[in-house]
């Protein structure tokens, strides 16, 4: 029994002695790193950073993009009532929708986590459906549910002798509807985030709490929620960004109506910039989102920081 007699092509020869080669190799390592990151850098620079800078420049031009008007577009927006409606609706939309998404997500995650683990996958799978369908398409379904003449919801209400609801034509109900659809689309995301974080809480913490005589509510408030705090914070902040910048739902459901009452920054910018052809004004509208996004991102980053430090 002999092991590995012939070893071919391995340096029986004394390896070469020059120091230079090592530094060459070192250099090559960082060169490789930069080369590997280059496509990413190119995408970020050309398609994110540059457009952003360009957007600031654009927002200071006149409609024909021929003259520099400074803050003219911004001042013009300040004087428009519609713009303030958009600001108000965007904030209302983001906050109310996120609160309900977070609540539904939390309750659903708890419910799923309570039932025997055999059935959890099935229930979770069913509740993920809204999040899996492209939102523009599922909103189409909602639109049909809200359709004034044929509304299937109103048909149900009529069965209980409740008068028909003007889902998309009344200001209050239109706002209600876009928020409802957004909650429907976004709640599953909270569900899976919370479920993952619920499952990562070690079981013995609950056992220790039981031995200490904690009730179910006390366990929820003293074990579960504190353990989930970080993930709840990140998910909520993240969802505020996404909801605040939403476009699809409002665009398909109400196109901003009735009387511009459901416009968000994104849909309003689209209306002004693409549809009415005033690109600089549209750029100015979407830039108004930036401060809010920047602050939220900064807060998220502080939560996520630990991980990047470890890399």
């Amino acid at each position: 029994m002999t092991v590995g007699v012939a070893v071919r092509g391995l340096p029986e020869r004394a390896p070469s002695v020059r120091r230079g080669r090592f530094y060459l190799w070192l250099r090559r390592r960082s060169t490789i790193a930069v080369m590997m990151c280059f496509p990413l850098l190119a995408i970020i620079t050309c398609l994110v950073a540059y457009p952003f800078a360009y957007s600031i420049y654009l927002s200071m031009l006149n409609k024909a993009e021929t003259a520099f008007v400074g803050f003219g577009n911004f001042l013009f927006l300040f004087k428009r009532e519609t713009f303030w409606l958009v600001v108000q609706q965007s904030i209302l939309f983001a906050l109310v929708a996120v609160i309900f998404k977070a609540l539904i997500g939390l309750i659903a995650a708890h419910a799923v986590n309570t039932i025997p683990s055999k059935g959890q996958r099935k229930w979770r799978g069913m509740m993920m459906v809204p999040w899996v369908i492209p939102p523009a398409l599922s909103t189409l379904g909602w639109w049909w549910l809200f359709e004034p003449t044929y509304s299937a919801f109103n048909w149900l209400l009529a069965e209980f002798a409740v008068p028909a609801v003007p889902w998309l034509s009344d200001v209050f109900w239109a706002r209600f509807s876009v928020i409802l659809v957004n909650v429907w689309v976004g709640a599953p995301f909270f569900l899976i985030m919370y479920l993952a974080s619920l499952k990562s809480i070690p079981e013995d913490l609950y056992e220790a709490a039981s031995i200490d005589g904690a009730s179910a509510w006390q366990k929820l408030f003293h074990v579960t929620l504190p353990m989930m705090r970080n993930i709840i914070a990140i998910t909520v902040l993240f969802s505020i960004i996404v909801t605040f910048a939403n476009f699809d739902i409002v665009r398909v459901l109400t196109q901003g109506g009735p009387r511009n009452s459901t416009h968000l920054f994104a849909t309003y910018a689209f209306r002004v910039g693409i549809e009415s052809g005033d690109i600089p004004l549209g750029a100015a509208v979407s830039l108004f989102m930036f401060p809010a996004l920047a602050i939220l991102s900064f807060v998220i980053l502080r939560n996520v920081r630990q991980r990047t430090v470890n890399i």
């Binding site: 590997m36 952003f52 690109i279 930036f290």
Partner: peptide, 29 residues
């Protein structure tokens, strides 16, 4: 391949992920 600035870049990547399409569609147009 931890190189100079790789930590900053990883953070930057995360930040770019938070940039929504509705912020940039007009200049990109």
């Amino acid at each position: 391949l931890g190189f100079w600035g790789s930590g900053v870049m990883a953070t930057g990547v995360f930040l770019v992920y938070l940039v929504p399409d509705s912020l940039l569609f007009i200049p990109l147009f």
